[in-house]
């Protein structure tokens, strides 16, 4: 058996975290105002998962990375222009909503289906990566459901580190309560790893990586199947942006000693 991994990363786009988000109610339920016009980025945790996957693939010869992305085709196309320069991968595009108000069960179904459809994917080499939650739906549930649908019962959530041991086993560090990591050792693939931030910086843009990726990205986008996802059975009664506007007291020209005293009183109070 080859030593390489088959790394499938699930990840899509989310609105740039710096955008002001406003909910609107459409015929199909809640959505974001100007959703199609908001600048979007690769979901940050899924991004970490992708970079970790690429890093692992680099160190384990004969590995391959796929990126399974569910989003509106035009937006995915735009997203690919930036991330395709980062690391080598083959895209599997699904044309559907990347909005936050979709149900994880439905999203998991289309993702699992797409993973199963990847030609040449070997289950005993499969590591299924994704973010520990998306920055949109923010459920932290989708990856486990995809894994469950694929019958993978070795699953890890909020992973920050993965080490391949000499015997081929996987040492995994998961974030748990109390600023601790749980250390587990998994005998090997198949496994699901939903990543937290990991430890890798964002890779630089490499034009040659971009050129190579592009050969598969455009055909993948052209092939993208419609993947309607919604939140069947859910009735949204209200979606609001909580107003947390406070009456800020701005203290200028107060001597440092006095500020310090005021703070200490407050801390102790």
């Amino acid at each position: 058996m080859s030593s390489g991994f088959h790394l499938v990363v699930c990840g899509s786009l989310v609105p740039d975290p710096l955008q002001t988000l406003e909910p609107v109610t459409g015929p199909a339920g809640p959505a974001l105002k100007n959703e199609m016009m908001l600048p979007s980025v690769l979901d940050p945790w899924a991004g970490h998962a992708l970079y970790e996957a690429a890093h692992l693939a680099e160190s384990a010869p004969d590995s391959k990375v796929w990126l399974v992305s569910l989003g509106p085709k035009a937006r995915l196309q735009q997203l690919m222009m930036s991330i395709a320069q980062k690391v080598p991968f083959e895209l599997v595009a699904l044309d559907g909503s990347a909005g936050g108000f979709t149900d994880p069960t439905e999203v998991a179904a289309v993702l699992a289906n797409a993973v199963q459809g990847i030609a040449g994917l070997e289950r005993d080499r499969l590591l299924l990566f994704g973010g520990c939650a998306s920055a949109s739906r923010d459920a932290g549930a989708t990856m486990q459901m995809v894994g469950e649908r694929l019958g993978i019962t070795e699953q890890f959530l909020a992973v920050d580190e993965l080490t391949v041991e000499c015997d081929g086993s996987l040492k995994v560090l998961e974030r748990i309560e109390g600023a601790q990591y749980q250390i587990s050792v998994c005998a090997g693939p198949p496994a699901v790893l939903a990543w937290a931030t990991g430890n890798l910086p964002e890779p630089p843009n490499n034009p040659q990586v971009g050129m190579v990726n592009m050969r598969s990205v455009m055909p993948a986008l052209q092939r993208a199947q419609p993947a309607p996802v919604a939140a069947e059975g859910v009735k949204f009664l209200d979606v609001t942006v909580p107003r947390q506007q406070r009456d800020t007291r701005i203290v200028r020209d107060m001597p440092v000693d006095e500020i310090a005293r005021e703070l200490v009183d407050w801390i102790r109070g």
Binding site: M37, A74, Q77, Q78, M81, S82, Q85, N205, P207, G210, M211, M214, M218, P219, L221, Q222
Partner: peptide, 23 residues
């Protein structure tokens, strides 16, 4: 901004040119 994005989407969709932002 919107016009450029609209043009870019069509260009990228054609697969005949490559547009690389961030470079």
């Amino acid at each position: 901004g919107q016009f450029n994005q609209w043009v870019a989407a069509q260009l990228m969709g054609s697969g005949l040119v490559q547009l690389w932002p961030g470079m």
